[in-house]
Amino acid sequence: MCGRYANTKSGEELGRYFEADEVDEVRLPPSWNIAPTQRIHVVVDTVPKDLAGSGGGAPVTRRVTTARWSLVPRFAKELTSRYPTFNARSETAAEKPTFRSAVVRSRALVPADGYYEWLTVGKTKTPYFVTDPLEGELAFAGLYSWWRPPVAEGEEPEPWVLTATILTRAAAGPAARIHDRIPVMLPRAEWDSWLDPTIAGDHALVQHAVAASQPVIERLTVHEVAPLRGDGPELVAPLNPL
């Protein structure tokens, strides 16, 4: 699973890296300790509403924006859930009611410098930081959903809230020695097909993303870090390399 990660790049920097057409003006400070329900950067591709579902040829706009990290489906009555939704299992996302609609047409990338995972031995949990030494940037496969509270008769509707989750898969490569789950991390060649809202996503598309993540996962590097307290660059400083 992925329950903490770092992203220190601005929206403008991410816009250049992901070759976005638009970057929202909402600014997030750099963070080395991003937690579920916080605002995060996401990359999405969209088409005009009147052309959604029209298939190939529709104009696609790539956008860097922000979302609340923990996906809330439109049918939910509350923003908070008793079940964690900051991660979605790739094996079941296409069939679970919470994530099923997002798999079809609301897929995202979640940028990260790296992420944390904890090695558990008995009652001792040791944190490690995981990065890509080749790209220096990770692109987690994600899903998103727009949500707002139900509107009572005679009341004004509240603004829509963009929410997002990160897909996970069975661990492989160096990080498998720490935990049995790992985020799905897409190489550059897979970004367009994953984000394309004119492609109706299904279980096969998710599994293709899982398979495509393998080369990234195999080259990851892992190092031990100090316990996560506060927020700053010292959190990712290596202690004892694994």
Rank of each mutant, 00 (worst) to 15 (best):
L134I: 13
R219D: 10
L162Q: 12
E95C: 08
G3E: 03
R16A: 06
G230S: 10
F99Q: 02
L109V: 09
A226S: 15
M1P: 05
N33D: 14
R68S: 04
V47P: 05
A171S: 00
T98V: 08
N240W: 10
V110A: 03
I217D: 13
P149W: 08
V60A: 13
T61N: 10
E190Y: 06
P187Y: 05
E78G: 08
C2I: 09
A209K: 12
T92F: 05
A172H: 13
F129I: 11
L195K: 04
P48V: 11
I182T: 13
P127W: 00
S193N: 15
P48M: 09
W194P: 05
N7S: 15
D21W: 07
L167T: 12
K49H: 13
A152Y: 01
R169L: 14
A141H: 06
P159Y: 02
G114I: 03
E137D: 14
P187D: 04
N7Y: 03
T126F: 00
A237C: 10
D192C: 14
P73F: 13
I40P: 05
M1D: 11
Y128R: 00
S54L: 06
R82I: 15
L109C: 09
P183Q: 04
D21M: 04
L162P: 06
A211R: 12
E158M: 05
G232F: 12
V222A: 01
E91A: 15
S101M: 15
F18M: 11
V161P: 03
P174I: 01
L239R: 05
K123T: 12
